[in-house]
Simulated assay, not measured.
Amino acid sequence: MLRFNSSGTITSAQWILSNTSSNCAGGATPWGTWLSCEETSSGRVWETYPATGASAVSRPAMGRFKHEAAAADPVRQAVYLTEDQTDGCFYRFRPTTWGNLSSGTLEVLVAGTGTSGMFTWQVVPDVDGSPTTTRNQVSGAKHFNGGEGCHYANNTVWFTTKGDNRVWEVHVDNITGSTYGDLYVAEDGGNLEICIITPDDIVAPFLRLVGHDSSEITGPAFTPNGQRLYFLSQRGTSGSSSGGITFEVTGPFRV
Rank of each mutant, 00 (worst) to 15 (best):
L106M: 13
P125F: 11
V138W: 08
R92Y: 09
A70P: 01
S58P: 15
G147I: 06
Q77D: 03
S116E: 12
R59P: 10
N136Q: 11
S102H: 10
T96R: 13
T115R: 10
T132N: 09
R76K: 13
G129P: 07
Y91V: 05
G140W: 05
R94E: 14
Q137R: 10
A70G: 01
F93S: 12
V123C: 05
A54G: 14
A56M: 06
T133G: 07
F119E: 06
T105R: 13
P60F: 12
G114L: 02
A54V: 06
T134N: 15
N100V: 13
N100Y: 13
S102R: 07
T134V: 15
T86L: 08
E148V: 03
F90K: 00
M118D: 14
T133D: 11
S58D: 15
H67I: 06
V79Q: 04
G149A: 10
K66F: 01
K142L: 02
A69Y: 04
L81F: 09
G146E: 01
E107G: 05
V138K: 07
T132D: 08
E83C: 07
G117W: 08
V127P: 04
D73E: 09
R64T: 12
F90Y: 14
E68M: 00
L106T: 09
V75L: 13
A54D: 15
T115M: 07
G117E: 06
Q85C: 01
V79Y: 15
R94P: 01
S116F: 07
V79M: 12
V57R: 14
T86W: 02
G53C: 01
G147A: 04
R59T: 12
T132E: 10
T132G: 03
N145D: 11
F90V: 02
S103W: 09
T82K: 04
A72F: 13
P74C: 09
Y80D: 00
L109D: 01
K142D: 03
T115G: 14
T97S: 15
G149W: 00
A111P: 00
A71G: 12
V108I: 14
W121I: 06
Q77N: 10
P125K: 11
V124G: 01
N136A: 12
V108W: 05
K66V: 00
T120N: 11
V110Y: 05
T82F: 03
Q137T: 10
E107D: 06
G53M: 00
V124E: 05
F65I: 07
Q77K: 15
Q122A: 15
L81N: 04
G99E: 10
A70N: 10
G140V: 06
R94W: 02
G114T: 13
Y91E: 00
G149D: 07
M62F: 12
V127G: 02
T134Y: 02
T134C: 15
A54P: 08
T105V: 15
